[in-house]
Amino acid sequence: MGNTAAQDYDDITKAIQPYLDGAKAGKGDTMKPAFHANATVYGYLGDTLVSGPIKLIYDWADSIGPAPKVTPRVVKVDVAGTAANVRIEVDNWQQHRFTDVFNLLKIDGKWVIVNKIFHTHQ
Rank of each mutant, 00 (worst) to 15 (best):
L56N: 03
D29R: 01
T30D: 09
G46T: 10
V77M: 09
D29I: 04
G81M: 01
K76L: 13
A83Q: 12
P66M: 04
G65C: 03
A37H: 14
K55G: 12
T71H: 15
Y42P: 02
H36L: 11
K55Q: 15
A61M: 12
V77L: 00
D29H: 01
A23E: 15
K27T: 08
I57D: 12
A37D: 15
A34Q: 08
A23S: 08
A23I: 13
F35M: 08
L49G: 04
K32C: 09
D29L: 00
P66A: 14
T82C: 05
A61I: 05
G65T: 04
Y19C: 09
G65V: 02
D29K: 11
D78C: 07
Y44V: 07
G43W: 03
K76T: 12
A80Y: 10
A25M: 07
H36A: 15
V79F: 02
V79L: 07
F35I: 05
A61E: 12
S63I: 08
A25Q: 13
V74M: 05
L49N: 09
A67W: 03
L49Q: 10
A25G: 04
A80V: 12
G43S: 07
A67L: 00
G46Y: 09
G81F: 10
V77K: 01
G65K: 06
V70G: 02
D78Y: 04
H36P: 13
Y58C: 02
A80G: 08
G22I: 05
P72D: 02
K76I: 01
P66H: 06
A23N: 10
A34G: 10
H36E: 14
T82Q: 13
K27P: 05
A37I: 15
T71R: 13
H36C: 12
Y44R: 03
A67E: 05
S63K: 12
V50W: 09
I64L: 10
D62P: 00
Y44A: 11
G65A: 01
V79T: 10
D59Y: 00
G22Q: 06
A39V: 13
G22R: 02
T48F: 03
G52S: 07
A23K: 11
T30Y: 02
G46F: 08
D62K: 05
A83M: 11
D62I: 07
S51P: 02
D29Q: 08
F35R: 07
K55E: 15
K76M: 13
A34Y: 04
A80S: 14
K69L: 11
A67D: 03
T82S: 14
P53V: 04
A23L: 15
T82D: 15
G43N: 05
G81S: 00
Y19N: 11
G81P: 10
D21Q: 06
P53G: 06
L20M: 10
K55M: 06
G52P: 11
G28C: 06
P68G: 04
Y58W: 11
T48K: 12
Y58F: 15
S51C: 05
A83G: 08
Y42H: 14
P68D: 02
S63G: 09
P33F: 04
I64F: 09
T71S: 14
H36Q: 13
A37G: 11
A25L: 06
A37K: 15
I64D: 01
G81E: 06
G46E: 06
I54Y: 03
A83Y: 09
K24R: 14
G26Q: 01
V41E: 02
Y19D: 08
D21H: 03
V74W: 00
